[in-house]
Design a protein around this nucleic acid. Structure first.
Lengths: 401, 401
DNA sequence: GTAATTTGTTTGGTTGACATACTAATTGAC
DNA sequence: GTCAATTAGTATGTCAACCAAACAAATTAC
C-alpha cells in the first residue's frame, strides 16, 4: 500500500541542496550535507522511491566539473518536478492570474482572466480565483495535491492583523484570508503577500543556479512606485509585510504631480502620471507611455528633456536606496521601465559619482519575468518555505508500507 | 578522560530554545523542539554533563505560568553561562573596547583603553586589541577558550573583498582581517563588522525574552548619521555589510551644513555639526551638544526653534525609512539623541500624519546600551551564529569518554 | 595495461529518537 | 483529608538513521 509520509529533516535538506545546485551526484550531495556517501545513497533511494528525486537522463550533460577530473564519474540526481506543486495567484487591477510551480521550481501551469478590480467585490475575486485554480489543477498530473496557495494582492494587511486594505481596488477592512479560506476550505494552507514583494521574489528566486543569497532591490514603476527587498536570498518583509514602500521616499520638496499632503515623494517625480505630466508641461503634448517611449526613441527633444529630468530624480532615489540597502542588483519592473535604457548611462554615472569610493555599485537591470510575475513570485515563496523545512508546508512523499 | 566534543544538531537547537525563553522545563523544551519528553530528558542530561546547561537554583521563581496550573511542576533548565564565551571588540575614534559575552548571552568581562584613532596605524590598534583580549580572558574562568572574536570598525570593507576603508580613521586599503589573524594566529576565528550594524544588534539582541524576530532600525547620530537594520531578528547586512548607511538619504536640496558634492543628505540636517551650525545661525552662540541640550531644557527660544527645525527634517528621514523598511521599533543612539525627548511629540505627530491609514507606526525609543554597544553587539553576533548552528562556531561540550 | 582516483553499494555496529509504561508532584472536587 | 485528574520526569525495549569499513565499478594518468 502506498501512503503519504512526512519527510525527514535530511531529506528536506537534500532536496534544498539539489534545488540550489540544479543536480548533484550522490557523492557531491554527501559533501554538501556533511553526511557519508552510504547514508546519502540510502537518502536518494528513499527520495526516488517517494517520487521526489530521479537520476538525470540526458547523458549528454556529463561534464560536471571541468575536464581533468579523475575517478569514476557520478550519476547526477535531480529533483522530480512532479513531486509537489505550489500555487500562486495575483489579484490585479485589470486581471486575476494563477500559476502552479512544481517541486523543481519550474512553472507548470497558468491561467488568467480579466477582472474589473475597482468596482468589483472581494467575493467576486475569490470566486474567480477558485475557478482558475480548478483550471490549472486540471493541467497538473492526476491526483497532484498542492501544498498551498499564496495570493499576491495590491495592498497591505492592516495593523489589526485581520483586515486588509487595497486602496487601489477600493477595498478596506476586508478579511481576504478568511474569504479565501472558506472558498478552499481545508484543502491547503492559504497565505497573502503584497504584490511588489511577490514580484521581487519572482525576479530573484533561482536567478542564478548555485546562488541563493542574493541581495537585490526590485522597483515596480506604474502610477505608484513600489518595491520589494531581498536580503541574503530572503524577502525583507518588515513588520506586516509592508517593507519596500519606496514610493513615499522623500527626495525633494514638490514633485511633477503635486500632492499637498505628502509632497516631494519619489513617485510624484518618477511614476507614470508624473512622467507624462512633465512631458505635457514641456511639450504641450498629452501622451501615453508607449507614445512617449516612441517619441524618445525618435529623438524628440521634449521627450529627451523629460527623460533627463526623470533620470535626475530617479537617480536620487536610487542613490538613497543603494546606500540604505546596499543591494547587489537593482531590477526595474513595471511599464515605465521601458524608458530606462535611454537614460541608463546618466543614472549610472550619477550613482557612481554619489556612492563613496570603494562602495559596491549595484547593477541596474530590467525585469525578466512577464505578466505572471506576482503570481509566480507568490508560488515561489511557498516553494522556498517548503524547501526550508517550514512545518506549515512539510513536504511529503509516497512510500510503500 | 574528558574530551571536547561537537554538539549534535538537536543539542544546539535545545540551547537556542533555552536562550530564547530564558529557562524551560524539560517538558516545555520537548514541546518547543517537537521531541518526546524521554528524548529531551536525555538531551538535557547530556548538556548538563557537558557543562552547557543546568537546573535553575532559585526556588523562588517557581511561578512558571500563571497560577491555576495543575500537575507536577517542572524543574526549570537554563543555559550554563560558563559553557562558552564570545569576544567582541570595537575600534573607535577615541578608544578601543573589548567585551566577553557568555553562552547565556550575558556580558561577563570588559576592558578598554584610550586610542588616538586618526594618526594611529592599524598595527597599533591590533596590538591594543591583543592586550585587551588577554586582559578580559584573565577575567574569565580558568581554561575558557573563546569561540571567536568579532571586531566592530567605523567603516566598511571595500568591493575588492580584502581591503578595508575607514575614512574617519584615515585608513584606506588596510587588510585588517589579516592583521588580526596574524595577532591571534589560529586561536579562534576572527570576523569584522561595521560599528553601526554591531550597535543595532546590541540594542535588539534579546531585548525581549521569548522574542527573536524583531524588526527594528537603529539610528546612530553623531557628526555623521549611520544605521543598522534588523529584519526578523537578523542583521540586514547587504552586499558587503554596508546596508544602513542612512546618512546619505537625500531628503532635501541643501542642508544646514552644505556639502557641494552630495547636498541635501540627512546627516547635513540632523548630524551634530548640522544641529550646532543651525543653532549658531539662529542664536549667534557657539555651543556643544551638552550646552545645547541645557539651553533647550531651560527653554531658550533659539534652542527651541533649532530643535523644531531639527525635528522637521528628522521626521522626514524617519518617514522615508519607516515606509522603506517598516520596522516595529526605531532606536536612537549617539550623543545627539539627547535632544529627542524634547521633540518626540512633534516627530511622532509627523510620522502618524505621513504614514498611510492602517499602516503600523513604529515606536521611537532611546538607546539602552552604553558605550560598550559596538563591542557588545559584535560579540552577540557570534553568539547568535553559534546558537543558529553556524558550522564556523560549532558549539562544543566536555564529555566523559 | 596498471596504478590512482573517485563513485556508488553493501554490511554490521552505534546511537538518537520513539512509544510505552512507570513514578513523582501538584491542583481541584468532594 | 482523601482521591481523582493532570502534568513532569525517568526507565526500557524497539526502530531506524547514520557511520565506518570494505568492496566493486568506472574513469584518468602514466
Amino acid at each position: 500500500m502506498l501512503v503519504s509520509t512526512d519527510l525527514r529533516p535530511n531529506e528536506t535538506r537534500a532536496l534544498a541542496a539539489l534545488f540550489r545546485a540544479g543536480a548533484l551526484s550522490r557523492a557531491a550531495l554527501a559533501r554538501d550535507l556533511g553526511l557519508t556517501r552510504s547514508t546519502t545513497g540510502a537518502l536518494v533511494l528513499g527520495l526516488t522511491e517517494a517520487g521526489l528525486a530521479r537520476e538525470r537522463s540526458d547523458e549528454a550533460n556529463d561534464e560536471q566539473d571541468g575536464e581533468g577530473r579523475v575517478g569514476r564519474p557520478g550519476i547526477l540526481v535531480e529533483i522530480e518536478g512532479n513531486g509537489g506543486f505550489f500555487l500562486g495567484a495575483y489579484i490585479g487591477v485589470n486581471w486575476i492570474a494563477t500559476v502552479a510551480v512544481d517541486l523543481a521550481g519550474a512553472q507548470r501551469a497558468s491561467a488568467s482572466r480579466a477582472f474589473a478590480g475597482p468596482g468589483s467585490t472581494p467575493e467576486a475575486a475569490v470566486a474567480i480565483i477558485r475557478e482558475l485554480v480548478a483550471e490549472i489543477r486540471s493541467q497538473l498530473p492526476e491526483g497532484a495535491r498542492p501544498y498551498g496557495l499564496n495570493v499576491a494582492v495590491p495592498g497591505f494587511p492592516a495593523a489589526d492583523g485581520i483586515s486588509y486594505h487595497a486602496t487601489i481596488l477600493g477595498w478596506h477592512g476586508v478579511n481576504l484570508a478568511e474569504l479565501l479560506g472558506n472558498a478552499f476550505r481545508g484543502d491547503f494552507p492559504i497565505l497573502l503577500e503584497n504584490d511588489a514583494n511577490a514580484v521581487a521574489v519572482a525576479e530573484t528566486y533561482r536567478a542564478q543556479p548555485g546562488k541563493d543569497d542574493e541581495d537585490a532591490l526590485v522597483i515596480l514603476i506604474e502610477n505608484g512606485v513600489g518595491g520589494g527587498i531581498i536580503n541574503a536570498g530572503r524577502l525583507h518583509r518588515g513588520r506586516l509585510g509592508g517593507a519596500g514602500e519606496i514610493g513615499h521616499l522623500r527626495i525633494g520638496d514638490e514633485g511633477f504631480v503635486f500632492d499637498a499632503k505628502r509632497p516631494g515623494r519619489l513617485e510624484s517625480y518618477v511614476g507614470k502620471d508624473a512622467l507624462l505630466a512633465r512631458y505635457l508641461h514641456i511639450s504641450g503634448r498629452r501622451a501615453g507611455v508607449d507614445e512617449f517611449v516612441a517619441a524618445l526613441a525618435g529623438g524628440d527633444p521634449a521627450a529627451v528633456a523629460t527623460a533627463r529630468d526623470w533620470a535626475l530624480w530617479f537617480g536620487r532615489g536610487l542613490a538613497t536606496l543603494a546606500c540604505t540597502l546596499q543591494p547587489e542588483r537593482i531590477i526595474l519592473s513595471g511599464s515605465v521601465n521601458a524608458i530606462y535604457p535611454f537614460v541608463a548611462e546618466q543614472v549610472e554615472a550619477f550613482l557612481l559619482d554619489f556612492l563613496a569610493e570603494g562602495y559596491p555599485v549595484p547593477t541596474v537591470e530590467l525585469s525578466r519575468v512577464g505578466a505572471d510575475g506576482p503570481a509566480l513570485g507568490a508560488a515561489c515563496l511557498l516553494h522556498q518555505a517548503a524547501l526550508s523545512g517550514d512545518p506549515q508546508f512539510q513536504l511529503r512523499g509516497l512510500a510503500a508500507r
